[in-house]
Design a protein around this nucleic acid. Sequence first.
DNA 1: CGGCGGAATGAGAGCGCTCTCTCGGCGCGT
DNA 2: ACGCGCCGAGAGAGCGCTCTCATTCCGCCG
Lengths: 344, 344
Amino acid sequence: MSDPSFAPRPTLEAVAARAGVSRATASRVVNGSEGVRAPLAERVKRAVDELGYVPNQAARALVTRRNDAIAVVVAEPETRFFADPFFAQQVRGISRELTLYDNQLVLLLTEGAADYERVGRYLGGGHVDGALIFSLHDDDTLPALARRAGVPTVIGGRPDWSDGDTLYVDCDNRGGARDAVRHLLNLGCRRIGHIAGPLDQTASVDRLDGFRDALPDIDPRLVAEGDFTPDGGSRAMARLLDDFPDLDGVFAASDVMASGALRLLRTRGCRVPEDVAVVGFDDIVSVAEWTDPPLTTIRQDIEEMGRMMARLLLRRIESGAAGADAPALSSIVTRTQLVVRASA
Amino acid sequence: MSDPSFAPRPTLEAVAARAGVSRATASRVVNGSEGVRAPLAERVKRAVDELGYVPNQAARALVTRRNDAIAVVVAEPETRFFADPFFAQQVRGISRELTLYDNQLVLLLTEGAADYERVGRYLGGGHVDGALIFSLHDDDTLPALARRAGVPTVIGGRPDWSDGDTLYVDCDNRGGARDAVRHLLNLGCRRIGHIAGPLDQTASVDRLDGFRDALPDIDPRLVAEGDFTPDGGSRAMARLLDDFPDLDGVFAASDVMASGALRLLRTRGCRVPEDVAVVGFDDIVSVAEWTDPPLTTIRQDIEEMGRMMARLLLRRIESGAAGADAPALSSIVTRTQLVVRASA
DNA sequence: CGGCGGAATGAGAGCGCTCTCTCGGCGCGT
DNA sequence: ACGCGCCGAGAGAGCGCTCTCATTCCGCCG
């Protein structure tokens, strides 16, 4: 087997020799620093081309302490990670932003706490310059892990603790939820239920809080906990309907759950929005536009949030490298927006 | 800002000093090689714990030429990558297998050929020990790129060229397609159409070939090309129905497209399977079990294929390291299986 | 026309690790 | 009791790169 990986890769040394310059000069040219006279630079570039030289990243990383790679750590079984379009969009945003700055995305999937040790080792090993952590649940040790590993981190979604040092990007879950319920109220709904996400995540809690803001002193049974899956939404909807046959409005904490709720509503013969009006959250287009009827929802710009996470992290890494007098960085909370379609 | 990344990470040297041994011995202990007497090894381990030592991967990679990381390159816009459960399952399989062997997964998303240069640089940079490439289209230069970069590669899905050196993992697309059509035939269908995938991918072509195997000399208009999305399936179904009102059977080249077809069939008032029987391909459970009616389909074990890809690649890397007398590796084609649900 | 300043180039010291090679010490055979 | 062989530990040479610092070369001014 003629394994091409056996052809030893040319080193900077070789390039320098061929160009008749020193390694230092070759390095300067390769890294695009100025102060090399044109003819020399030209010769080096030619040598690079002819030899097909590509810098060895390990060697470079060893001295620069930079990897130009950041990890995306998902504290969620792959099943949900891939099934949920929310992650998909966020990762896309991240990926695009990182690409812009020539950084690579290393995906670290965890299946339960057993993998945490492995992830910790990886982060500590200096493989990546930073980490983006997603979808935290109560008491998740992932951020602590990253911190111990000395890896700059940005979290997707407000964490359930707060200290000035923790950076995150989230949307205004509470305000968005409030808007959703007010919309329902304006439509004339009198009996409004809420399909919440798992309450060990702040996004769910914040949305529930927003719901309560608009509807204080509500019967607690009007809140049914789902799990961000269609089925969960469906089950929660069923419970709500069983407990409150006079239900005429529902705010679901995610579009995906709302789609499940819609499905159940249909099997129960309820018309949407005539009998029951439904508002979702997220505005995941591939879901919200395709439900029957199309979903009224609270829009958050998920991809943009992904980009922001990446940018924030990159800046934090940068500032770490720059020293103490770096500009202070702060978490970002984005605005949400009501998108009215047909379901409410 | 008290950036913890500024606490310099302890080096092997420090561990050795603390344990009162040489760097070499410390290294031996850390890497679990034998031939170090227990008391010494014990002291080293203690030092590692106390210092919180984690080996610097860049330094290690520099000398071992191993990164314990492999790249997954997706020649597909993120949109489809994330939207399509097929990739999700495959990546899960890969991730699991890699984790087993303490390898990391680096996800390289490409958005069009513009990104190829970047990917090439990355692969050539020695960041990863190997690459898994997915979802190739005609004349895709990705494999050539990987080869030029000297990176061992395994391809997901049969490539459209063949040479003994190219390793791939695929299922028996043609045989599966044949089975699907035969099932339709056994059911008594007389006018069977095919919703094909994009014909610049071998999987689509192979499935079409299987369709033709079972139905030679068929009217070419009975084949409608889709794009592996629900919408594409829907559109193709519409075309088929328009051209052949007497259609009574459809074989779709993917479950996702079949679900779109089902949707269209419903809007047209066709009963499934009474009026038109439908068979899909893939057996993506989250799709096939949830369509209405549940989808009869051709099962391929996608996750297992992912695992196989990873294993094959790891072995190829291994064999590269072992030298010429490594066992010959060969591509894998897995068996498919008809799964009968309600749609046919 | 000598010398000075500044820019361009080269020399060389590591970065943290692995691994070969050498050396020291111990058990054993005679 | 002496020497041989072998196992366990240490010394040291890189891996390929970056970057500081010394050196050289040039254009100019005096």
